[in-house]
Nucleic acid binder design. Structure first.
Lengths: 148, 148
DNA sequence: ATCATATTGTACGATGTCGAACTATATGGA
DNA sequence: TCCATATAGTTCGACATCGTACAATATGAT
């Protein structure tokens, strides 16, 4: 492994630790014992629209469909989503957000307001806005090279 | 939530997705059915030296000590580490790498050589080296503000 | 129309993650 | 010295994640 590789390795190492720390932070503030993965699905549906199939959501998060089955079951049991049979494909289902689900997404986001503002104050919001484009490049690249 | 907050939120969102995608990539190439979390511990011990206590390792990764107990048990069962009583503190243990453990770390790293080189070629290694300092700042900040 | 194959989702079992409660040892003050 | 408190690690139970196998439906070739 050469120096370049080491930098990349270190990069993903930092990503992993930041993810661990920020998830823990988020987790601690989520209401109800809701898990980060549950919120992530709600957030995805709010941002990109609901009426998605379970498989489409699983693919978006790059998790196995069995995992998504479980996650959606939790969300449905708590009435944050509802699932209906697909109109034209008998094998499939469609996921809809409920009002409670949209509300929960808003609540979860606003629960992070304090810490986010604190970070913006302490580290400077520019730090994050400047990093974003590069991170998006990496994310898009990984997303389109999953079979690498 | 204002615009600044949105940027920060988006930042952690990207971090999460990159982590998910890169972990999946690592995972698929790890020998033996070794999990990313197991490799991470081996890697930590190689990089920063072994002879650490379980709690010190747990703190380094910001995971509960119960999680580390489990992770270390797996590594010990596979003879990648061995654990001995602490010399001066009867409550504690000390973790040592075995030769097999060091070898496994090398193997795991070299199994990622192809993808890492590919990424360096496609995206440019500078992208990653330039991001590193900022990511380290964020990581350090989160690390020292766990109670936020 | 029929049938081989692909696709969508689920059931189940194995393992990873984590919080609460517990045991053993260490530490510091009376 | 004795005891209250703190710390290191484990056990246990709950839940998340994921691979394998499976059932139901769709698709496409004949």
């Amino acid at each position: 492994m050469n120096t370049e590789d080491k930098s990349l390795f270190q990069f993903f190492n930092e990503i992993g630790i930041i993810n661990q720390l920020s998830s823990a932070l988020f987790q601690a503030r989520l209401p109800d014992g809701l898990h980060v993965s549950h919120f992530a699905v709600l957030n995805h549906l709010v941002r990109l629209g609901d009426e998605k199939t379970p498989l489409a959501i699983a693919n978006a998060f790059q998790v196995p469909k069995t995992t998504m089955t479980h996650t959606l079951a939790v969300l449905e049991k708590r009435y944050f989503i509802r699932m209906a049979p697909h109109e034209t494909d008998g094998r499939s289902k469609v996921v809809f957000l409920t009002d409670a689900g949209r509300q929960m997404q808003r609540d979860a986001i606003s629960s992070m307001d304090g810490p986010l503002r604190q970070m913006a104050d302490d580290l400077g919001a520019e730090l994050f806005t400047e990093l974003l484009p590069a991170l998006e490049r990496v994310r898009t690249y990984l997303d389109t090279h999953r079979d690498m």
